[in-house]
């Protein structure tokens, strides 16, 4: 289909349709050549943010590598729902080894492919590793840091839904403060997850000075695709941290996955940015800053903050964290500040 220039009539919105863009700007998902790397028929929940994120990310990586790619998957929801063998959703070479070793397995795959290339047995084949926040920020963190510091030629994608959803919604080091999980119940004097805990792995990835670090959400899939394609232009260790709402674990409606992801970004709860060699190179600006309540309210995991006696103090602390993100990652236009 040839490109037909169309007049932009929705200037200033984010809902520019694909047909309004030049071919090179169109999304991979909209292309007839998209690979459906994570094919339909898998067993993810309705409204699963991780399935959506993985589909866009892996197809974009496939496009960037000319379909010459191997994927290594950590244990977790994505691994389980995509491969109820004899059915598999993966239309690509894919391996799952353990929960905590995906970055190291990917290093091994990359090393093997390099040797094969040097022997003239194979052309250039790239490696993508992926896992949830449990597999990435907790149990796989040692292997991840090792892969980063050696600058192994691996692109690692973390799908962050803020907890161990596959095992029944337990707290991880990516669970936000105040969130209810099965191991941080909404009971006692400080219901939900404690403040002052957890870690933001994109910042730690930056501290390794690796070539490329970025964050994204499933609310802006074109940005997600752009970051995947950009990541594949680099060699060495690269990291993409995607916020993927989990309707089950967050207690949110399946239809609200994109809305909540967008609210995470628009409130400053989740900063969307990119960095090269440890330095921030750009951030997705918030258009109209919203209070964190907007993000918290649609999620049952934060329900204990509201009700008849709202926990004003906890909400204020969450707002302060969002404000810090806005300052730290420059999420507002300079003039808006």
């Amino acid at each position: 289909m040839s490109f037909q220039p169309v007049k932009f009539y929705q200037t200033g919105t984010f809902t520019v349709g694909n047909r309004l863009l030049a071919p090179e700007q169109r999304s991979v998902q909209a292309a007839t050549s998209r690979r459906n790397s994570l094919n339909s028929g898998h067993r993810a929940c309705q409204g699963c943010g991780e399935a959506l994120g993985a589909r866009y990310a892996i197809d974009a990586a496939m496009e960037a590598t000319g379909n010459r790619m191997v994927v290594v998957n950590a244990t977790g929801c994505l691994e389980v729902f995509s491969t109820p063998y004899p059915e598999t959703s993966w239309q690509i070479p894919w391996i799952h080894s353990l929960f905590g070793n995906a970055p190291a397995v990917a290093t091994g795959v990359a090393a093997a492919l390099k040797v094969k290339r040097l022997k003239g047995l194979l052309g250039d084949v790239r490696v993508v590793a992926q896992g949830g926040d449990g597999g990435t920020t907790d149990i796989g963190f040692g292997c991840l840091s090792g892969m980063f510091e050696r600058n192994d030629d691996v692109f690692y994608i973390c799908y962050d839904n803020g907890g161990y959803m596959n095992t029944g919604v337990q707290r991880s080091s990516a669970t936000p403060p105040a969130a209810r999980t099965a191991t941080t119940e909404a009971v006692g004097p400080t219901p939900g997850h404690a403040f002052g805990q957890g870690k933001f792995v994109p910042a730690i990835a930056m501290a390794h000075d690796i070539p490329y670090v970025a964050t994204a959400t499933v609310a802006d899939l074109r940005d997600l695709e752009y970051k995947v394609r950009k990541a594949m232009t680099f060699r060495g260790a690269r990291y993409l941290h995607i916020l993927v709402p989990c309707p089950l674990g967050w207690g949110a409606a399946s239809k609200d996955t994109l809305r909540i992801a967008r609210l995470a970004k628009e409130t400053g709860v989740f900063p969307v940015f990119e960095a090269e060699s440890g330095e921030l190179t750009g951030s997705s600006k918030i258009r109209h800053v919203l209070p964190v309540e907007e993000y918290l309210r649609p999620q049952k995991r934060f329900a204990h903050l509201f009700g008849p006696k709202p926990d004003v103090a906890a909400i204020a602390r969450l707002q302060a964290l969002a404000n810090r993100n806005i300052r730290k990652y420059r999420l507002l236009d300079e003039e808006a500040l």
Binding site: G100, T107, G108, V109, A112, C143
Partner: peptide, 14 residues
């Protein structure tokens, strides 16, 4: 743990 995991990935990639 990483040593064996790297070996796993490498071996699986031939």
């Amino acid at each position: 743990f990483a040593a064996m995991s790297v070996a796993i990935g490498a071996s699986a990639a031939g």
